[in-house]
Design a protein around this nucleic acid. Structure first.
Lengths: 216, 216
DNA sequence: GATATGTTGTGAAATAATGCACTTTATGCT
DNA sequence: AGCATAAAGTGCATTATTTCACAACATATC
């Protein structure tokens, strides 16, 4: 296993490559050049070659990359060769949509348990996933050996729930709440903030991509 | 209006600052130092000061930043002082959740129209938003002068729908599909890829934050 | 087998972002 | 009023990331 430093920026692009390689493979394509890939994933071809090179010499000069073996390589690298069970904390609006969202299918990840406080839904099974009450959270996470959770609780309780998750031995949190929660070292937070994304887009539209330059 | 170059990295942090300032203001706090802010938003204090300094001298040495005036400044900068109407394209799983998602409230953005092909829902009003059929999309977008859309259609139709959006004069797309869609110059895409986020998180867990170092 | 072609892998330059550490200046206390 | 303290603003070194441009090498062709 290549353990030497992979730049963060590279690591974040790996899933993009992986997904597109899957599409290519399904369409029957046998080989791909960095230039062709570049166009599809909107990343400069030199960046792609550099990214790949961190993992060794994956291509052949004058030929390109073999789709199948590159796909297999990234499958392993991204741990998509084995199933990862994750839990969903908070089955509200967004949580509910994520239960139905087809993570599994393009992705070897399964939501195997969900948790909520609302006793109208706890004890039921939604989209094939059992909903447990919050007071069973720690117990279930430990028992099911779940290390990754998706956090979609209301922000006022985000920190409290997070603390509980950490004591349950969780190592990664995909955080949909707008709060930058505190965790001890060794727990990884990946923030997804929909409001931010929208505001950033609007900011760029009004300040960078101005249709007519406004100097005043 | 400050028009000089604001670094991308800075621009992406502005909504984070803005949100936290709102929280501070509501809690009655009058002033804040960069160090204090740094802790809450998990950004180095020097980076915060640098970020702010691109917009001029917003603070007072020895005192810090005045919460109210900083909040007002960012409100203007992020165009949150006026309402932005956006459209939602594709009312499936995720789309439906976003209709209910409280963009409005912490955020001066309103979903004022939605579009779908399913004639069981077109013509109805969901969560206060009228759902139009796809063949009225262009017409409605032009008429309602909508420039920003949230794209939550199935990926096989993503490019086709995007082309239509561009001819309708759309300037910004918050793209939830996994495809890197093609648009002409001047149209901004902001990609949000939930599968990627999850895969990236899992990658980091297995390769960077290893609980016990595996050298082999 | 030699030659032409295509495309990788990478040294090195360019660009971008971060963060240290210090100067400057405002505030608040005595 | 003067002094101690706090914290912004910033020059600069460092680190990270991107991109150019080319040598190296595999493949295909004649």
């Amino acid at each position: 296993m290549i353990n030497s430093k992979i730049p963060q920026a590279t690591a974040k692009r790996l899933p993009i490559y992986y997904r597109y390689l899957g599409i290519l493979y399904n369409s029957g394509k046998k080989r791909i050049s960095s230039t062709e890939l570049a166009e599809a994933v909107k990343v400069d071809s030199a960046t792609i070659r550099r990214d790949f090179s961190y993992f060794g010499a994956l291509g052949k000069r004058g030929y390109g990359y073999d789709v199948k073996s590159l796909l297999d390589f990234f499958k392993k690298t991204l741990n998509q060769d084995k199933l990862t069970n994750v839990a969903l904390i908070g089955v509200g609006n967004l949580g509910h949509a994520l239960l139905n969202y087809n993570f599994h299918g393009s992705n070897n990840v399964r939501i195997s348990a969900a948790f909520d406080i609302d006793d109208r839904i706890t004890g039921t099974i939604q989209s094939g996933v059992p909903i447990y009450p919050m007071n069973e959270m720690k117990e279930q996470l430990v028992e099911q050996q779940i290390e990754v959770v998706i956090l979609t609780v209301p922000s006022p309780v985000a920190q409290r729930v997070t603390d509980e998750l950490v004591t349950a031995g969780i190592r990664g949190i995909l955080n949909f709440t707008p709060l930058r929660v505190n965790v001890q070292d060794g727990v990884r937070i990946q923030n997804v903030d929909l409001t931010n994304e929208l505001q950033t887009l609007i900011y760029f539209l009004n300040h960078v991509d101005q249709p007519q330059a406004s100097t005043k």
